[in-house]
Design a protein around this nucleic acid. Sequence first.
DNA 1: CTTGCTGCAAAATCTTTGCACCATA
DNA 2: TATGGTGCAAAGATTTTGCAGCAAG
Lengths: 130, 130
Amino acid sequence: MTPSSRATRQRAAILEVLAADRSFLSARQIHASLERRARDVALATVYRTLKSLSRQGALDTIPGESESLYCLCRSSEHHHHLVCRSCGISIELENPALESWASRVADEHGFEAVDHTLELYGTCRRCSAG
Amino acid sequence: MTPSSRATRQRAAILEVLAADRSFLSARQIHASLERRARDVALATVYRTLKSLSRQGALDTIPGESESLYCLCRSSEHHHHLVCRSCGISIELENPALESWASRVADEHGFEAVDHTLELYGTCRRCSAG
DNA sequence: CTTGCTGCAAAATCTTTGCACCATA
DNA sequence: TATGGTGCAAAGATTTTGCAGCAAG
């Protein structure tokens, strides 16, 4: 079963990694980071915990090249990201104009229960330099 | 190797399906549609051809629940979609204000080579009704 | 003819799951 | 102590690839 709330060593370790490096990371990257910190957590547990945290709205998920990427966001409000393709670092963005545009367009076309995804992908200053 | 341009029966059949049903479809759905039309095309060929068409900019790709979804777009210009979660039908959208916002935000944060993804997902009138 | 595409089956990912055991509350 | 989480290994699902044969230019 997918974890839901219990405070375990594994969940704490995963949140520790996500909090330390507020970037979009894959399950494998998180798992590797846990190993480096000498935190033994099975990959399956990483997946289960990420799914649980994601369902609780505690973290944001975006699709990467092939894997999904997860990031612990500062804001719990609806927002978007400017993500570095190279290191995964992310900057949280808001765009109220987009929100109203989206609902207007949805209405115009008779769509219901519309939400949206918006992410910007590029290369951050640090990665451009190095 | 991934196909690039040669005019084969298989490529024509895949484009036929995509042109007939301008929705976001998965590789499996396309493969199933080909079977219904009595067009024998291997699933691997569907994948190879979709990848090739996608690279040529001939079709748009978005990530679905687990599979990727492909749609033959009318417009070859940069645009976004309002997609029905249920049937995959898509409406092409433009939003110039978003484009300028995106490049301004990218500049502000020193990001380079920034592009973006924006899709709206909801339920179309027809699917809401039935 | 030559090169590239296709089919098939096997492999490679990424992610999920069954089950026995362990840890939290 | 009861419930829920974890680890492990196996299964699933999607996508890719090697290779021999076929077809398009």
